[in-house]
Design a protein around this nucleic acid. Structure first.
Lengths: 349, 349
DNA sequence: GTGAAAGCGCTAACAA
DNA sequence: TTGTTAGCGCTTTCAC
């Protein structure tokens, strides 16, 4: 069936060679901008390419090149549910990427520990990988470690939290300032008519994603919601137990606490605290990342909104970008844009 | 550089043939589940596949098959900004898909006109396409036209608005009921403390996406916001002028109109109406689809929220799904899930 | 500077 | 039921 359909066969390099009256090798040199071809020959070939409307067949090119790619993710080692999601997606994608001559791996390193992270990055032999995705704090030691990778021709991307001061090739993740602004807008709107204090739970001042969220959050509250006061961040290092322990004092000291912006991990501690005192007036809660923890919290009304990013998209995007960067081919930035997802109980997925 | 890296060369069908002591052709038959191989031989080959950890190289397979794909989109012909976005994305993707041996095209057909749509679908020669994406109303004539395509081996998907009663292979788009619920939740929350009427602007009762949104919207308002009353839908057929003309009466008849849910096109008419009466108390407005029209409306505060879906993702997804269905290979449903995006002025992109 | 020729891993006639 | 063989379109030595 459809035999005739399968035949509007595109021009190949053979056709170009014929039309341009050169050999296959020369066409290839021109196509791949390799040196050692006379100007006039280049022009002849390009004219033929133009004339025939040639488009390179990526499958054939990939096969002939026969190159293998190896990319590795460096992730924080803690029991953050979102990180677990990321790792799961990496493992899933690894399976399908084998068909595309690319190998994926992941290493875990102590969370919020720049020195350990730098060590882990330095432990990666640049000769054995084509790209590394580094998720961690932006500190001098981390920057240096990334610099070392780059010096050895390795592609580096920073997923989730950007490391703009390093030589990383790309950031893969949401605009965290905008995410913070969005959280503030929702919080403020959901608190129409109320006034009082807002608690912001953060992971660490080292975490750029958390910092940026706080920045955006403050900006919008200050601009649009003068009746709301944002308290200094509580740093919980994504540790539910620590957060659980810190909360009573915060609530005790601020009787007019009307909202909680949980911009980091540790939501379990927050939920435990909220559940333990059913008499208290429940604050409006906006949290981050849709996980097995936040999903039920949203469904049952403990959380009012969750700002999230798709872990699958993030991982696929990181790999596509590393692959494209390593192979020096262009990136479709629209496809790689990670969306700020807003989840209410009504669009839960 | 990295010469040794490029060598952890995967096993090929040659290796399998050697280990299983059969020919390449037999391995190929087993791999592609082609008939005419003895049970015991199949087992031998599968054992070798297992043992060697074989993974098929998709690039090589694609090259050897040398098949071309042709997919076409059937889109409503009106000046809806979202549809323009879709068409633009189709044209953009068409350029890159040429490298993957697939051709994309699009035809436009009168909007909200099931007969014209059915005719247009029937005009497609099943011998010249591998897949058709049909965006339009769910009516018997459309169903029959789709049925005809399916009978001739053509893959059919329905983007944006589902046609579940047809034989379409897949729906590509957001859960419109959930989108409506989300709109209602935002509307209700943004109207905390107010009571009054809500106007719902729809395109047509024929449009399943609009119907489903209304369904979800009503459900949540009824459940969570008893102080709000939803008026019967105003059908504007995505026509700004018609909407502009209908609005004065609606506002005049309902002095307590506090919200507008614009679930379809025609937003230009709504904006014109709102701008023309600066003295009126502005209703909370939730609209659909981020376009050159709704983006500034959101930024300037005329709209409070926009529910959207990524046109680029939608088109890429439709093409991936048609390709996978035509080639009988599995779909990564997580990747193809189109997200309900919520846009506030603070996460505008 | 340029060309000839041997594959890359898989598929699909055609034979046997 | 199984095997042989000639490619798919491109890249890459190596020779001229």
């Amino acid at each position: 069936m459809k035999a005739q359909l399968s035949s509007p066969t595109n021009p190949t390099i053979n056709d170009i060679a014929r039309v341009a009256e050169v050999s296959l090798a020369t066409v290839d040199r021109v196509l791949n901008a390799r040196p050692g071809v006379r100007e006039t020959t280049v022009a002849k070939v390009n004219r033929a390419i133009e004339e025939l409307g040639y488009v390179r067949d990526t499958a054939a090119a990939a096969l002939a090149r026969g190159r293998f790619y190896h990319f590795t993710f460096v992730l924080p080692q803690n029991d953050n549910a979102f990180i677990a999601l990321l790792e799961q997606q990496i493992n899933m994608l690894a399976l399908t990427m084998r068909h595309e001559r690319t190998k994926l791996s992941a290493v875990r390193v102590a969370a919020f520990d720049p020195v350990a992270l730098a060590k882990a990055i330095e432990a990666i032999d640049p000769a054995t990988v084509d790209g590394v995705a580094v998720f961690g704090p932006e500190t001098p030691s981390v920057r240096d470690a990334i610099s070392h990778l780059k010096a050895n021709g390795v592609t580096v991307v920073s997923p989730v939290a950007d490391i703009p001061s390093s030589e990383r090739d790309h950031y893969i993740g949401v605009d965290n300032v905008a995410a913070g602004r969005t959280a503030a807008q929702l919080m403020g709107r959901f608190l129409t008519g109320s006034s009082g204090k807002i608690l912001v739970v953060s992971g660490s001042m080292l975490a750029r994603d958390h910092l940026e969220r706080r920045l955006g959050f403050d900006e919008v509250i200050a601009r649009d919601f003068p009746d709301l006061d944002v308290l200094p961040s509580v740093e919980c290092r994504d540790d539910p137990a620590l957060l659980r322990q810190l909360l009573p004092a915060v609530f005790a000291d601020n009787a007019d606490l009307v909202g909680v912006y949980s911009s980091a991990g540790g939501n379990e501690g927050l939920l435990e605290y909220l559940a333990q005192d059913p008499t208290a007036k429940r604050p409006v809660v906006v949290a981050h990342e849709l996980t097995d923890l936040t999903r039920p919290a949203l469904a049952e009304g403990w959380f009012d909104a969750v700002i999230s990013q798709d872990a699958g998209h993030l991982v696929r995007s990181a790999v596509r970008v590393m692959r494209a960067t390593s192979a020096r081919i262009p990136i479709n930035s629209a496809q790689e844009r990670i969306r700020i997802e807003i989840l209410l109980r009504d669009n839960l997925i």
